[in-house]
Design a protein around this nucleic acid. Sequence first.
DNA 1: CGGAATCTTGATTAGGTTCAAGATGAGTGG
DNA 2: CCACTCATCTTGAACCTAATCAAGATTCCG
Lengths: 262, 262
Amino acid sequence: MDARTRINAEYLMPTSSDASLASRNFHSRINCQDCAISELCLPVALLESEIEHLDSIIKRNRPLQKGEHLYRAGDGLQCVYAVRTGTLKTYTLNNEGTEQITGFYLPGEVVGLDGLHEHTHPSFAVALETTMICSIPFHQLEELAGIIPNLRMQLLKIMSREIQSDQELFQLTKKNAEERLAAFLVNLSTRYAKRGLSAQNFILPMSRGDIGNYLGLTIETVSRLFTRYQKADLIDTKGREIHLKDMKSLSQLAGTNCHSSV
Amino acid sequence: MDARTRINAEYLMPTSSDASLASRNFHSRINCQDCAISELCLPVALLESEIEHLDSIIKRNRPLQKGEHLYRAGDGLQCVYAVRTGTLKTYTLNNEGTEQITGFYLPGEVVGLDGLHEHTHPSFAVALETTMICSIPFHQLEELAGIIPNLRMQLLKIMSREIQSDQELFQLTKKNAEERLAAFLVNLSTRYAKRGLSAQNFILPMSRGDIGNYLGLTIETVSRLFTRYQKADLIDTKGREIHLKDMKSLSQLAGTNCHSSV
DNA sequence: CGGAATCTTGATTAGGTTCAAGATGAGTGG
DNA sequence: CCACTCATCTTGAACCTAATCAAGATTCCG
């Protein structure tokens, strides 16, 4: 049940006449050199030639459709993955077999870094919408990190950032429902802004249920909070569209950490 | 018997007459080669000569006394630190300036890995008891990781494990008080067992207040849970001494993850 | 258009916090 | 060794937030 073989097996060529597209790279024109989000991703601080080297080990398959899995818990870990476009969610299953969402991943973010140490994915990763992925064979990445100091440093930085943001996430246990959802929205907003998108207006790629699951709240509470925020003129929502009207108050509600530089 | 007496047996306070001990290595005889917990720490899988190389960049100062800080939020990040003996807690301050505990660190565990990416510690680290630390200059470690593939891999593994355990920690948001405390105790137990200590009997290095803060519960709730567990014959406690009588039920309560290999 | 999934809103309940008061324990000095 | 203090811990009662149960409303999609 390897992710890659699944992808290849399910792969449908865009035009039956062009067989070459079925080969290693789905879009041969896509590469790190031209990628809009390389600034957020692994190639940061690399020289042109180093980026080419990195790019040469990266595989790009056809996009994942909504609901398709990138990998599953228990799968062997061959690759780590960078989101190119779209959104992933990662989750585990608890004793009762219910989903426990552990994270949402936006373009430029790297998933699969948990589980390096045991060569096995401890969680599931699934697309919330049509999502394009760069697959980076971990073994080759790790070797390359031995050769390219900047890449080694960037890999450490990405992991360090993940550790920090996971610890910030954990601070949610100390917050009430109102604060949790505010923190979630502010966090998403910040991440969209980094990607050159609007910090005020975006479309939530996940359902209310997903948000609730992630934050440890029920779907009813999330729904009620959205209406409460709306009445307080903090936000404006229609379905998954959201407009953050009062970022300052939301941030304050979120109780952003004093020493958080994010 | 307990961790603290073990430490006292190993450690003798410096006499004020011997100033030389205050220099680079407090105990010149302490090194990675002979360290009991090297198996849990950075030297895993290194050759003898590689361990010597690693050891040569590590600094060991006098022990931290209870309440002494190893670093503070905002401090520049020169080193990452491995706990040799004792216990650290890490915390941040929220808007209101109240402490938010983010983690407890036992011997062999590495702290300071958050904040690599911005060369600044995002949190505080303070000793909960007399604690000996190995300071590892990050720049040198990173360079060494370029030369020694096994060290590079071990560093990645340590960070990967931290990411995974932080994500498991985050699952506490989905648990109620009873489950949270059980998860906490089982987690501590597992970590002590890995260190060759008893999984059933140990002394909690932190106060009820610290536990509550960490888990997002009030001290009263923690206290009530301890008595409830005791009445249910799950544990036996007297102050900070704790005996886990029914590990199976506790683990079940904790709701350990299906795919968790820890 | 119709059925399913998702979302909203209301009423009730329960788990955990808050407020309050004692109890226990560790550390200090006489 | 005891008395005293301060910090930590325990227990009780009242309150409140968020979960649960329940019923509609809305949106999505074939």
